[in-house]
Write a protein that binds this DNA or RNA. Structure first.
Lengths: 188, 188
DNA sequence: ACCGTCATGTCAGTGACTGACATCAGTCTA
DNA sequence: TAGACTGATGTCAGTCACTGACATGACGGT
């Protein structure tokens, strides 16, 4: 056995999510999270940049997945289709752990600071997707707007997917939201 | 003469913007802002909820303006046109103090925490616009998506307007961005 | 003259986050 | 195999955002 229990990072993450869910983000101190994980506050901040980041460290993975999907979409695909297809491809990533995703979302929705962090992660996602589109030869502002549209579509679809009354596949809801957006913007 | 110099709030705001611009948001303490305004730290927090809010207190005014414009748009206007027209109507509000708006934007763009706050303000704007659309009889998810699309259009137009190389009217850039979005999403 | 209000000041406290340095099991190297 | 090296963790002191409780004193009204 090593000097320390393994997977401190994972323990910190679980402890944080549990405490945020139990008593709310604001009523949880980092010292408490660390204690539940059998570690100290200082160690928490060595693994996560701040108290919120523990809920968002997966974002770069999602971003890489989406960027890859946009870049490798068939040349014939229109920009918006490439983006929407990328989000559809990410569907299973969420579908796998639906319950965890829901709990996490409930925690985020309950706190303004966490919503802020979620928004900047989505914005970063948007920038990365726009950059991938530019690499496909899409000019600006089309690239930026397409990425933003993709994000809006995803947000709407994800909200529906998380809500209790729905049990449909995320990918299906995404495609449906694309249709809604097209109907709404009027288009050319 | 009153017991105190008048307009503490305005002095705090000016001091904050000046210091954030001079030495950056992170390198400015609230105590320094208060001192420059001839007040104490505690008074700063009586006027502004936190260190960032001093740059964003105008948001509710803009929100009210946009909501009003959406609600009073001609019945014949499509949802997206009502929203875009509302943003166009807000154009002069920015045009009046172009230099101040630019400095503020430079400060915000230079700091991640401030960008977070900007994003949540825009999201709140989006929710308010979506609610106004619903009052016009637009159903969801169309209302939400239209509002989001409007925000995306505004963001792109505003970024162009702020950038040095442009000197066109904000309203003109907004209308142009609508066309770009329509071209990009394909639409029906 | 008196009283209540209200913007501000004062002060003590909590909690997020940081930098500097200590510890020590496991590993590598002479 | 002794000793140096590494890397994750602990310890500690410090800064700063933010809050609650209470004090102050000019002003306006009675």
């Amino acid at each position: 056995m090593g000097r320390w229990e393994p997977d401190s990072r994972g323990r910190l993450e679980q402890a944080a999510l549990a405490l945020y869910a139990e008593r709310g983000y604001e009523n949880t101190t980092v010292a408490e999270i660390a204690a539940r994980a059998g570690l100290t506050e200082r160690t928490f901040f060595r693994h996560f940049a701040d108290k919120r980041e523990v809920l968002f460290w997966g974002a770069p993975t999602l971003e890489a997945l989406l960027v890859g999907a946009v870049e490798t979409a068939p040349e014939s695909a229109s920009p918006i289709d490439a983006v929407v297809a990328a989000f559809e491809a990410a569907g299973p990533l969420f579908q796998e752990r639906r319950d965890g995703a829901r709990q996490r979302q409930r925690v985020i929705d309950a706190n303004a600071e966490l919503r802020e962090r979620e928004l900047i992660k989505l914005a970063s996602l948007g920038s990365a997707i726009a950059a991938a589109l530019r690499r496909r030869g899409v000019a600006d502002p089309a690239a930026t707007l397409t990425a933003e549209a993709g994000i809006a579509i995803f947000r709407v679809a994800f909200a529906r997917w998380v809500s209790d009354s729905e049990s449909r596949e995320l990918a299906e809801l995404i495609r449906e939201s694309l249709g809604d957006l097209q109907a709404v913007t009027g288009g050319r």
